[in-house]
Amino acid sequence: MPMITLHNVSKAFGDNRVLDGVSLNVEESESRVILGGSGTGKTVLLKVVLGLLRPDNGSIFVDGAEVDLDEPLALFEIRKKIGMCFQMAALFDSMTVTENISFGLSRHTSYSPSQIQSRVDECLSLVGLRGTGDLYPSELSGGMKRRVGFARAIALKPKILLFDEPTTGLDPVMTDVISKVITDLRSELRATTITITHDLKVAFIIGQNISLLHRGSIVASGNPVEFAAIQDPLVQQFIKGTSEGPFLVDSPPKRQRTLL
């Protein structure tokens, strides 16, 4: 049985149909990368999986349980199995790094303070940030914030990890660091992961399977070798990163005027 199943999921904001009948199966321990351009509904897809947004149509199952926003207690049980890593980390800015990571532990486990501290140190080690526990989010760089976000997400040892644009806005070196951290976390926790990105390099490093989301639908899927070989013009345009092709809704101007 797949760990995550989306069946014919649709979501619109007003007239803007962001997800249009998306169906997706992610198997246990699989690392799935979902590629797509900006504004194609990638983050919305993660939010419907988490039950943060109610889909207009379709159903979502996580580890066999249906995500139902009208059942808040069942929804919280599902969320305990998921670690979410936000695009901008979404750290609690009035708390230290340690307090951020221990938040879920102190609320959902019966760990003693020393056990919590030990788990926090363990999580910080996994993301390569040992010794930063007393810092506040405002004292961290962008890459460090993302990694603290990862540490917070893995603290409760979730079965599933969701990464929303984990490398956006980072320099190439930090992008590689984050990619390695994600790969290490997945192998360490044996977790099922969905990573949303538009960074091809990251996608091919961490993904066992890659899907392309375009205008609210999954238009292509496959393992990295298969995906790279798909001859669909949409996929090839995205892989090559050219502006000419069917990918853009609004085509770019043919030539640029010289500004006087």
């Binding site: 939010k47 988490l50 039950g51 943060l52 808040p72 919280f76 049980e77 969320r79 305990k80 998921i82 670690g83 979410m84 936000f86 901008m88 979404a90 750290l91 609690f92 800015d93 938040f103 879920g104 609320r107 959902h108 917070r152 997400a153 409760l156």
Partner: peptide
């Protein structure tokens, strides 16, 4: 501010109402 910076979403993701 917590709403705009997704901290409230983060609370929900940590199974906290």
């Amino acid at each position: 501010t917590m709403r705009i910076t997704e901290q409230i979403d983060a609370l929900e993701c940590l199974a906290t109402d």
